[in-house]
Write a protein that binds this DNA or RNA. Structure first.
Length: 487
RNA sequence: GGCCCCAUGGUCAAGUGGACUAAGACACCGGUCUUUCAAGCCGGUAACCCGGGUUCGAAUCCCGGUGGGGUCACCA
């Protein structure tokens, strides 16, 4: 099987899901997966797109057995490097009389189409050049006119696509026209290059998005003309944006790279994408790569398009954030921590252990790595500000600075700075003052973190350590006095 | 518009003629836990597009509507 993107942009989740299904099918059935770049349109070619696509696929954990970057016995794997192969195959068709030269200009054809559209007819090529005599052809060639190659399509009969997901899909040949297989610049069109490659690369299964279903009869006709055996087709349903339309840039972040930047985990996206159009048939939703590979089957793929749901992806992401080994989470989170300048380029001795402890206490609250870095912020930096709403709520009562200093003194006296010890000390202070726990705990959290929400207070206290707690409590007390916060 | 595909809650999705008084998940709502916020746990609202057939029996099969999507390039 193969995944064949064109380097005209970044990999969006629709393409990623198609790649994923190819990958799953290959790995489940012991087949080979080949990555092929369809880069015959040099005008839409975007420099760097190929690298971006490869990077996105690898980040997701999808790998392939043959491709432009890893080589293989059927290379090259970029269509732009296979032009001689297409020309050779096209030459065969021409010689066999299965294709012919068309001297019509793009302008003429566009005019024809416009006329057909106005007349309410389907725009079809009229086959004008099909019956050109030798003499007429020679004349046009002598005049230096450029030509494209068209395939002779039978005017009658049917072409049937035997699709693994949809079953047989029948197309009337009469609805097709003599389409172009080689452009006048000597470059093949998509359908032709695709077929030649699938045939010469030994592709047995073509798994692609349903938008290609209507191309398939044309490709089958080319296969037959060339005399190659047909692959098995499976057209997977499309992924639609929440407005039910095909994915496009106006739908915001739909690229794999963007999800990555927003702090989604490859494990979560992999799992989510697999669930879009496929299910194991039971109630399991959180599945490992191995489970998915083991249970995946094309016949279990649904027929209808799916609308992706960011909320469910986010939920899955949070599930993975909580279930992954801490070491793995650290690896994934580190780039985000570095970007937020919570840690430096390299971790100083002991820092790794500290970060792991932070992750452990914070991760159940974060749904993405971006949120994680944000929530971990005050464990690494002192330069936070106090949440204004929190200030209103917890810093305005009279006596708060004094209370915070009392808390400071209390903590200062704790010998063994552990969870039980610090809490016991604080509870004692609360009891001695005859106040409710919240009256001390909330201002303390705000003083220590700048926030009103977060992990349990004593988890924070212990993790920050005595020294920083005392500093921050004093700093907050002074801040309140300086800023004369009053109700 | 022609051709093609599709149709179970807002979304993903189980279901392949009787086990359907239609699973499960996300989201939403309520409760519980609690120093806050999450997480967790418990519970709730919510669906077979419509109309005809076939059948003892239809979410499931057939036909027709309707709706949604895709595609109609010397793009891929």
């Amino acid at each position: 099987m193969r995944f064949a993107p064109s380097p005209t942009g970044s990999l969006h989740i629709g393409g990623a899901r198609t790649a994923l299904f190819n990958y799953l099918f290959a790995r489940a059935g012991g087949g080979r997966l080949v990555l092929r770049l369809e880069d015959t349109d040099f005008e839409r070619h975007i420099p760097g797109a190929e690298e971006g696509i490869i990077q996105s696929l690898r980040w997701l954990g999808i790998d392939w057995d043959e491709g432009p970057d890893v080589g293989g016995p059927y290379g090259p794997y970029r269509q732009s490097e296979r032009l001689d192969i297409y020309r050779r195959e096209a030459g065969r068709l021409l010689a066999a009389g299965l294709a012919y030269k068309c001297y019509c200009t793009p302008e003429e054809l566009a005019a024809e189409r416009e006329k057909a559209r106005k007349a309410g007819r389907a725009p079809r090529y009229n086959g004008r050049c099909r019956e050109l005599t030798e003499a007429e052809q020679a004349a046009k060639a002598a005049a230096g006119m450029k030509f494209a190659l068209r395939l002779k399509v039978p005017a009658t009969g049917q072409t049937v696509v035997e699709d693994l997901i949809h079953g047989p899909v029948v197309f009337e040949n009469a609805t097709l026209d003599d389409f172009i297989i080689m452009k006048s610049n000597g470059v093949p069109t998509y359908n032709f290059a695709c077929v030649v490659d699938d045939a010469t690369m030994g592709i047995t299964h073509v798994i692609r998005a349903e938008e290609h279903l209507s191309n398939t009869p044309k490709q089958i006709l080319i296969f037959r003309a060339l005399g190659y055996a047909l692959p098995v087709y499976a057209h997977v349903p499309m992924i639609l944006a929440p407005d039910r339309a095909k994915l496009s840039k106006r739908h915001g972040a739909t690229g794999v790279e963007e999800f990555r930047a927003q702090g989604y985990l490859p494990e979560a996206l992999f799992n989510y994408l697999a669930l879009l159009g496929w299910s194991p048939g039971d109630e399991r939703e959180i599945l490992s790569r191995e489970e998915i590979i083991r249970d995946f089957s094309l016949t279990a793929v649904s027929k209808h398009a799916a609308i992706y749901d960011l909320q469910k992806l986010t939920w899955l992401n949070s599930q993975y954030m909580n279930a992954l080994p801490l070491e793995r989470l650290l690896e994934l989170a580190l780039p985000f921590f570095k970007a937020a300048e919570l840690v430096g380029e390299t971790l100083v001795p002991g820092e790794r252990e500290y970060v792991l402890r932070v992750l452990e206490t914070v991760r159940s609250r974060a749904r993405t790595l971006v949120e994680l870095a944000d929530m971990a912020c005050y464990f690494f930096r002192d330069d936070f500000t106090y949440d204004p709403k929190g200030v209103q709520k917890f810093f305005t009562a009279p006596g708060v600075p004094e209370l915070l200093r009392a808390g400071k003194e209390t903590l200062a006296r704790v010998e063994n700075f552990g969870l039980a010890e610090t809490e016991a000390a604080y509870r004692e202070l609360i009891a001695a003052r005859g106040i409710s726990g919240g009256m001390l705990i909330h201002p303390t959290r705000l003083a220590l973190t700048g926030r009103t929400v977060g992990p349990g207070l004593f988890d924070i206290i212990v993790l920050l350590g005595k020294e920083r707690c005392l500093e921050r409590l004093e700093k907050a007390a002074a801040w309140i006095e300086e800023n004369a916060v009053r109700k």
